[in-house]
Design a protein around this nucleic acid. Structure first.
Length: 270
DNA sequence: AATCCCATCAACCGCACCAAC
DNA sequence: TGTTGGTGCGGTTGATGGGAT
């Protein structure tokens, strides 16, 4: 006997969220806290499954989310953390306050992967591609040393390797710089520390308007305009409401939101 | 101006994990 | 100890916008 589906899908809405749905969800969570996602849609008057609500909240509506592209520093952190943790996006995201696993995963697949490939780094192993292919070749040689034919391709490969070498050293230089920054902050990626929000100094270039999909457009407007009635906003944030980049300012007082979340989770489960 | 193609990212799906019983 | 239900996670899909032709 298989598992029950997370929700009976009959009559439930799918696809992009409307501003109205967003508002319902936000209002409900801010009033009641997050708890029992399965029951939430009914109680909040939403025709969505609990899973969908949770995802919408954690990936898009949470007020502590940073919007916009990842900074160079964040990107480098993602790369370093990925080297240690692999595709454990939620773990990686936990080191980048205001970023979601989904966001990081998407950014990895669309930007970082390509960037690394261009630099001659294998995004899976984080090793230089040439070194990897050499290893693979050696393995092949071990298996069948006489099978490798000398082809004209090899000279081309050598040229490509030279190019890769320079790219790789460029990357290593870059990483060394980043490591120096880490040293300054007392951050060593080997330890994979939890970074306190106040330690993150990320230039918020939120002019990087939130994504352009239909639902997000509606919702970003909603988020800008929305007043959260029962929510104790950090003062910094209130003072910056007239600024389109205000989401970034959450970083300054992220701990307050953490406290809020804890409070909400602790006490107010209906 | 119309169409095609590609990149991006929000949202979905299915499985894994964990706590409660 | 096994079962069940709730939640979290990672992979994948599909809608959308923008650039190229």
């Amino acid at each position: 006997m298989g598992r029950q589906p997370c929700c009976d899908k009959v009559g439930l809405k799918k696809g992009p969220w409307t501003a109205e749905e967003d508002q319902k969800l936000i209002n409900f969570i801010l009033t009641n806290g997050q708890c029992c996602w399965r029951a939430l849609p009914k109680l909040a008057g939403l025709l969505r499954c609990g899973k969908s609500c949770r995802l919408r909240w954690t990936n898009y509506l949470r007020p502590d989310l940073k919007r916009g592209l990842l900074s160079e520093y964040e990107e480098q952190m993602v790369i370093d953390l990925h080297a240690q943790l692999g595709n454990r996006w939620s773990k990686i995201a936990s080191h980048l306050p205001g970023r979601t696993d989904n966001e990081i995963k998407n950014h990895w697949n669309t930007h970082i992967k390509k960037k690394l490939m261009k630099m001659g780094i294998d995004p899976l192993t984080h090793k230089p591609l040439q070194q990897q292919s050499q290893q693979e070749q050696e393995q092949k040689m071990d298996k069948s040393p006489n099978e490798l034919p000398e082809t004209s391709l090899q000279s081309t490969i050598t040229e490509a390797k030279e190019e890769e070498k320079s790219l790789t050293s460029a990357l290593l230089d870059y990483r060394a710089t980043m490591m120096t920054m880490d040293d300054i902050d007392g951050f060593c990626t080997d330890e994979v520390p939890l970074i306190e929000p106040h330690e993150i100094l990320v230039p918020v270039t939120c002019s990087s308007a939130p994504s352009s999909t239909s639902s997000s457009c509606d919702s970003s407007k909603l988020l800008e305009e929305l007043q959260f009635p029962d929510f104790d906003w950090p003062t910094d944030c209130n003072t910056s409401n007239d600024n389109d980049e205000n989401f970034g300012l959450w970083n300054d007082d992220f701990s307050d939101w953490g406290g809020f979340a804890k409070r909400q989770n602790k006490g107010s489960c209906w």
